[in-house]
Amino acid sequence: MLNPTILWPAILNGVTTGALYALIALGLTLIYGVLHIINFAHGALLMVALYIVYFLFRLFGLAPYLSLAIVPPVMFALGYALQRGVIGRAGHGRDENILLVTLGLSIVIENLALMLFSSDTQTVETAYGFSTVSVLGAFIPVPKAVAFVGAVVTALALWAFMSRTDLGRAIRAVAKERKGARLVGIDVDHVYAMSFGIGVGVLGIAACLLMPSYYVTPQVGHGFILIAFTIVVLGGMGSFLGALIGGIVIGVVEAVGGLMLGESLGQIGIFAIFILILLFRPQGLLGHRA
């Protein structure tokens, strides 16, 4: 079982998948860090992004990696509009209301997709979909390697944006102290919507990187949303570095767990981590107590 010739490819596979999970979780953790809400519609919005990538390919023949120029800005605009128009108005001073509204949105989005596109599985076929590269003796598919590099670059860019730009500073200011931020002249509602938009825009990047090695169905978000929650909780709500490390840990746990226990039970490992962390260290590995 622990033969390195089997274990190493599994770990490598886990790391590359985990980087994509981390990317999805980055958006979630950004939204949580700033707005202090859990976006239950995150999985549904990822599904929307995947469908956009799919239809750009099907209707216009646009390769998924070229969609990187279109899908993230579209998703950003969608996220901005959702926060400004719906989610931000639903609070009435209670966090529970925001939870409920994002849950409601996810139900609407998923089932609209089911009505419009049926539950058929759709894939994008590319010339490089089945080619592989060798990493220290193990072969991984090219799309997964690209996704890994893309995820790391995106995370670095996001980190640079948050620490180097005015908007990034404003976002961090609002995350720390929203009243104080408002007093020094920051438009808090705009910052909220920008954060939500960026979090959802990152999903657009994730979708472009994911599509060549994955598929899309109306329910595809389900599989990702609990994994993304787990990563965010594991890394610490609001922590970027935590999300990256958490994503890779979860990817490896899933791959190695799947190898040893079989696909279906392998997932239990993820949820076991989730529940254990929530119970014993709810602030996460790198987060502060909420």
């Binding site: 719906v86 509204v101 949105l105 139900i107 609407v108 998923e110 089932n111 089911l114 049926s118």
Partner: peptide
């Protein structure tokens, strides 16, 4: 398929709003 859940989700969002 899904029409019922679309209504439920819409009702949920509208009620909370």
């Amino acid at each position: 398929p899904g029409a019922n859940m679309v209504i439920y989700g819409t009702v949920l969002v509208l009620m909370v709003l």
